[in-house]
Amino acid sequence: MPQIAQLAATYSSQIFWLLLTFGFVFFVIGLGMVPKVQSTVDARDKKIADDLEAARAGSAAADALEADWRARENEARAAAQARIVQAKAEAARNREIALAKADAAAGEKLAAAEREIEAGRVKALGEIEAVAAEVASDIVQRVAGAKVPADMALQAVKAVI
């Protein structure tokens, strides 16, 4: 059969061209393009790893900044609370001083008013005694017909009052 006799010649030619094509593809793609693609993939992987590491470092720095900020915020809050307490104490002290001054002024006014009242009372009592002595002297003169000196009548009225 002639078809079988041609098989060796046909297959050997096909195997030759197959090996030649695969060899060409291997050298061009395998040795020329694959290393470039592989280096690009490696560079991309390295870039991703570096970016992830930078992100982790940035996150750690942000956490440290946040902790520092919270510490400063807590210190500021404590300082503000201390200032509030100090301001309240100072306001209370000022209020006490103002109340003491007002109380002293009111006490002085009250004392002055009491002195005026006492002076008025003493003056009124003196006038009442003088009027009562005059009236008593007039009554004694009208009833008994005797003249009583003003100083004796005043002493008598003071003894009775």
Rank of each mutant, 00 (worst) to 15 (best):
V25P: 00
E134C: 00
A89I: 05
L110R: 14
Q14L: 14
I29E: 09
G120P: 00
A61V: 11
D151F: 01
D42L: 11
A100D: 04
A106F: 10
I97K: 09
A76F: 01
T10G: 04
I97W: 02
V157G: 02
L19H: 10
A98G: 02
R70T: 08
K47N: 06
L52H: 14
A133D: 01
Q38S: 10
I128R: 12
R56H: 10
A9F: 10
A62E: 11
V157I: 11
G126E: 11
A5G: 02
R77M: 09
I161Q: 13
R115T: 06
A104W: 03
I29R: 08
Q14I: 11
R115S: 13
G120H: 09
A130P: 00
G30D: 04
A100H: 10
S59Q: 14
Q14C: 02
V85E: 15
A60Q: 10
A87D: 08
R95M: 04
D50S: 12
K147Y: 07
A91F: 07
E127R: 07
R93A: 09
E127C: 00
Q3V: 08
A98S: 08
I161R: 15
V131L: 13
Q141G: 07
Q81S: 10
A106P: 01
A80E: 03
V160C: 04
D63A: 15
A91M: 05
E114Y: 09
D63T: 12
T10P: 00
G23P: 02
E75K: 10
T10I: 14
E96I: 07
V25D: 02
A5P: 00
M33H: 06
A76Q: 03
A61K: 13
A98R: 06
L154D: 04
P2Q: 13
S12T: 13
R83I: 02
K36R: 11
A153D: 00
